[in-house]
Nucleic acid binder design. Structure first.
Lengths: 320, 320
DNA sequence: ATAATTTATGAAACGCGTTTCAATGCAAGA
DNA sequence: TCTTGCATTGAAACGCGTTTCATAAATTAT
């Protein structure tokens, strides 16, 4: 395989000139440029991208950390990031962690290695103190409220939006409100829990641990929630479900069990995924594709540490 | 930032020795190894991965081409690939094409560039003749029946499985059978269409273009299918739906419209995604995570062009 | 005791494109 | 006519780890 030197020799010019032609830099005479192009065509020349990477110290790769890739929430986020990446000639390196710390650290190591130019963490597992050590190696972008921290972030203020949702349900007359969440830990979950507790306190409602269902990620997890629900003698009358998928699963199973929505149980989803529209689920819209796009642009604008809050919108449909 | 030379100088050894220590090669005395390690720690040495890539001519990156990343079908496939990649110290570069040829060619170019060591195409758009030109640059793996072609593949024989599904419905008494599919073109779609036409001919049934619904990818697409369905005066009595998501969407909308499943309309899904279990949808199981794993291993075993057929299993539930 | 291995170690070549810097030629402005 | 400046062009340095090959020393085998 021919390299730039071979082409230079063949075209009777220097490698510098060849490089200039390849990269469309000025100051190359038309004849020489033509000669170079001819030589490249003749040899079916392909420049070695790794040499470019080494030389430039950049890879045009952005790491994206997600716990799962088969979840619509992350799917949409990735979609948004991928679209923006495409437009900017960047590629994504997907790092699926399955919520294992080691995997996340591997991603951070890739940043340190300079194998990726920046790292977007869609859902963080490592403690902040661990992440902090890697900031010096390149931009790290979080998809969680990171105000006050020294990395950029695009986020939903989950305290605020959870509070708004709870108040909405309260206004509708609900006082026995529960919620479904993915994992218990994590910034977002903690914000939500804080909002929940503050809401209870403010309205002099008592805390009931049975009203909190964790491990809710997918449609099928709704089944488990309903199974638990029907065993409870004093059920919640409303459920805040942090994923439309799960909400849809709950809805489907409730129908089967003869639990009427919203009469017996009000359900409020999150994200405004297409499924919520089809199933008429009242939900809190989060423009995930938009979030993904912003995340990418923050990754590009590495030095600038900004924090973008994404507003959510309550979409009233038929499950509350 | 220190490089290998600096470390060598510091430790009083040659760069070769440092390299040996880094890569755990034998033939380094304990003292020198220790000196090297000490120097590396002192400088917080990080080797430049791009130099490694250039030198080795490998990147430990595998490209994965998908049309969308927010679809459970591809999500599971990616999951399978990602898990296997993780175990083998490979990373994935996700290339989302949105079914645009240019994007796929970009992925092929990455292979040519040696930016990725192999390319897995989960859903092909480019004509085979285009792909063929890139085979010489590295392993290309297809997730479609590529027997007879010079690239490896892991696939479901969609002709066979579609035929089996059609016969199953026929045995159940259905003669007015339609099907829902994503795109019309593509190997898989063509195999299915061929199976469909052959089935009709064999059973002396007439072809009705109204019975074929394309553009069915997601849950919400089920809504459109049902909308069309209720406008038809002579409806199919059974529908083969090439995605559980869509099947679930159809099921949900049918319930709303008072169409009883399976009495008025039998529905058969594909993939055996969790949603089909929750909604009791009869389906054809495709072990997508397993497929992903196989795809990865074929990518690893580049020179060996193998074709792995994945058997599917009919899972009887309550929608037929 | 001698030959045959094995262990240790480093110089140098290799992979390859980018970029800086110096130099030459030529044209426009003074 | 002479400077100033832009257009062209290439040599060489740079980014950096891997690997081959030669050499020397230490073992083991014969």
């Amino acid at each position: 395989m021919a390299n730039i030197k071979d082409i230079a020799k063949m075209a009777g010019v220097s490698v510098t000139t060849v490089s200039r032609v390849i990269n469309n830099y000025p100051y190359v005479s038309a004849e020489k440029a033509e000669a170079v192009r001819l030589a490249m065509k003749k040899c079916n020349y392909q420049r070695n991208i790794n040499a470019v990477h080494l030389s430039k110290g950049k890879t045009y790769l952005i790491g994206v950390v997600v716990p799962f890739s088969n979840h619509p929430y992350f799917g949409l986020l990735i979609e948004g990031i991928a679209n923006a990446a495409l437009k900017n000639n960047y590629k994504l390196v997907l790092i699926q962690t399955n919520y294992e710390k080691d995997k996340e650290i591997e991603a951070l190591t890739m940043l340190k290695d300079k194998q990726i130019d920046a790292l977007i963490v869609c859902s963080r597992i490592c403690e902040w103190s661990v992440m902090e050590d890697y900031i010096e190696y390149g931009p790290i972008i979080l998809c969680e409220d990171a105000r006050g921290k020294t990395v950029a972030s695009t986020f939903v203020d989950h305290y605020k939006s959870f509070t708004a949702a709870l108040n909405y349900l309260y206004q509708k007359g609900h006082t026995r409100i529960g919620y479904c969440i993915g994992r218990r830990s994590g910034t977002n979950s903690e914000q939500r829990d804080a909002a929940y507790k503050d809401f209870l306190e403010e309205n002099a409602l008592s805390y009931n641990s049975d009203f909190i269902f964790s491990g809710c990620f997918n449609f099928e997890d709704g089944e488990k929630v309903v199974a638990k629900l029907i065993q409870q003698k004093s059920r919640p009358t409303a459920l805040l479900v942090t994923s439309d998928q799960v909400a849809a699963g709950i809805l489907t199973c409730c129908k089967e069990q003869g639990i009427f929505i919203p009469e017996d149980l009000a359900i409020m989803g999150f994200d405004n995924q297409p499924i919520s529209q089809v199933m008429h689920i009242t939900t809190l819209e989060i423009p995930l594709v938009e979030v993904g796009k912003k995340l990418f642009h923050q990754a590009m604008d590495g030095e600038n540490v900004s924090h973008e809050e994404i507003p959510v919108k309550l979409i009233e449909r038929e499950t509350v």
